[in-house]
Nucleic acid binder design. Sequence first.
DNA 1: GAAACCTTGACACACCTTTGGTAAGGTTTG
DNA 2: CAAACCTTACCAAAGGTGTGTCAAGGTTTC
Lengths: 126, 126
Amino acid sequence: MDALTIHEAAETSGWTPRMLRYIERIGLIEPARSGSGYRMYGPGELQRLRTLRELLAEHDLGLGDVAFALRMRQDGAMQGDVDAWLEAEPRRPETVTAEDWLRWEQEKHARILEAVNANPKMETTA
Amino acid sequence: MDALTIHEAAETSGWTPRMLRYIERIGLIEPARSGSGYRMYGPGELQRLRTLRELLAEHDLGLGDVAFALRMRQDGAMQGDVDAWLEAEPRRPETVTAEDWLRWEQEKHARILEAVNANPKMETTA
DNA sequence: GAAACCTTGACACACCTTTGGTAAGGTTTG
DNA sequence: CAAACCTTACCAAAGGTGTGTCAAGGTTTC
């Protein structure tokens, strides 16, 4: 039995039980439930709770921000629309074709690779 | 002279002058300034203002959401950290290497291309 | 030079988010 | 079976967002 109850998970992760429920409600971490409905936090959830605090502190984010990022990732249409709107600004060729967009996205990989190499803390040491 | 003042831009875009200033303050649309500091909205800005309203309405977003998406795009480190946190959930290989991540990103292109083809309104008819 | 703009800054208000507390009731365990 | 958990569902307070309005002062235009 390596699953903690909500109070135990709260203590070891640095959140309050209240916030653990809130984090679940906004869809960020949804622990398994016991037969009678108790939340059961496993090692994966605990790790995620800790890294979540770091993520928020490091970049001065709110839980809502991360929830929004999650929503973007889950709703491809929204993601596409938002990205399209944001990309319409910096570049300014009259018309953006799908091929233009894909090329832009692929160039992004070069930037990503640079970031990876420049900053090699890419392990999610679960 | 095809640049509008803030009141004119407000009328033709459906925002209020107040909101145009707010939209500028959160970094979404920053019009050029005349020598004496007046905001000057060109056709590009007007188009962006209109599509911004559509974007918000279509996906029930707030201006803050779009501003956050912009911040993600501008701050690569934040983008990487948030993405890493979100991706740590659905997949569950013990360790995510830079190569894993890149492969994942590249597979994303297949999904993006599908989205483009399925939903070919990719023109930013500026 | 006066009317009609523009600028920034402040005060304000309605609403939403985040967080805490408490109440009524079910579960686990010594 | 009672203590110590857990659950959901409310009420509430602090802070942030989105929006309006007003004031003091500069600019454009007739």
